[in-house]
Design a protein around this nucleic acid. Sequence first.
RNA 1: GGCCUCGUGGGAGAGUGGUUAUCCAUCGGAUUGCAAAUCCGCGUACACCAGUUCGAUUCUGGUCGAGGCCUCCA
Length: 442
Amino acid sequence: MELTLYNSLTKSKQVFQPIDPADVRMYVCGPTVYDFAHIGNARPIIVFDVLYRLLRHVYGVPHVKYVRNITDVDDKINARAKEEGVSISDVTERTTRQFHEDISALGVLPPDVEPTCTSHIPQMVEMIEVLIAKGHAYEADGHVLFNTPSMKDYGELSRRSLDEMVAGARVEVATYKKDPTDFVLWKPSDDETPGWESPWGRGRPGWHIECSAMAREHLGEVFDIHGGGIDLQFPHHENEIAQSRCAHDTKVMANVWMHNGFLQVEGRKMSKSAGNFITINELLQKWPGEVLRFNMLRTQYRQPIDWTEKSVQESWDVLESWYGQSSPAEAGPALTGEVLEALADDMNTPRVIAALHQMEPAERASNIAALGFAGDLGDPRIGSVDDAAVEAAIALRLEAFGNRDFAEADRIRDELTAQGIQLKDSKDPATGERLTSWELKR
RNA sequence: GGCCUCGUGGGAGAGUGGUUAUCCAUCGGAUUGCAAAUCCGCGUACACCAGUUCGAUUCUGGUCGAGGCCUCCA
């Protein structure tokens, strides 16, 4: 089948043609592990999980390789460790564990490889040496810098010329740079900062070289898809491209570059200072993970998304209604019909959802199962409720019904309502007997 | 200041040079002892101003508005 993807490199939708259909390779920039992942971080995780599932459907599970790194070397991590008075590995290990816990609740498959920076330092050093040998990088004042004018088409991804960048720059240029747009490959570490021995003294890698080195190690010099958030397009991805292409003398690093749009919260940019910073973990205290997953997919991945309480509630309502008709837990996963077509159209997930609404419940259940939904809407807040007491109250209410004592029945219902418990009555279609279920009000 | 993305009905959100997106909410009805839940029915929107066109929400230009990035930063 034909799969169309939007390529940031060409700014157009293109039919996806893998280099080798028996070995389709995708790299996605993973988290820097210094703090809880926020809901904005969850977007690429979920979006590219959907793509991973689609690729596996199209090319076969054994023929797709998905690499998503963990950035465990970063000055933010160093700052956090210092602030807390703990070791750097304390911070990175704890945060990595938390990250895995949080995203597994979102129904994402683990990537095939999840490399860490700390285990790829030799590969980074080697790549930097190659770049120096080829005249693309130089040592200055203990740093190694990539010389951007040494690459003819630097800036192709973000479509800016070096002149534009210099003209628009607001940042003071370090004096040791040959050119204002040169960027760091390696920087020196003092005794208190993590560092590794290198030909340029004890130091640590710059931000971009990690992804170039890890992608090369696990996917080769040229691979199919590289993904990440739109905020990474420049400078991170631009510089990855520069490093990898210049080190390998290749025309591209990856054939298709994909960027998910930004996330806002209640109509405003999410930031700690604005007080609207939401972590995945916090949301999971209140909502089932698959509601968050569904909510994320209601917007096409390239569009900006406005994350609101109201939209999450709507997502919950939709899933509850679907699961009530046919649960994905009991369905054989399968991508079919219009759902598959919409997915293959640059992952048009809103169109996918519209198609799901039109499907028969059984087929729908199969499709949502294949999209990573398990059918579990267990309310994470339910632990705070004494459900035996609730069941007992419901039994008393049904007894009151039996006696036609509506005043007593309503009194019990009002009491439960006051506790935030919503009753739902239905009839057994066979016997006509009254059945009562309950849930916590949102 | 430079580069870029976006602006669809009450809300969310696809799409299209001329034809019902879809979902949620509202409203009306059925059902219910009363509610909730459930079921049925109802919505001709596409920021503004020009231009191209037989015809534009869909193409081009401009205006206004929202948002992102601008090299060590998350």
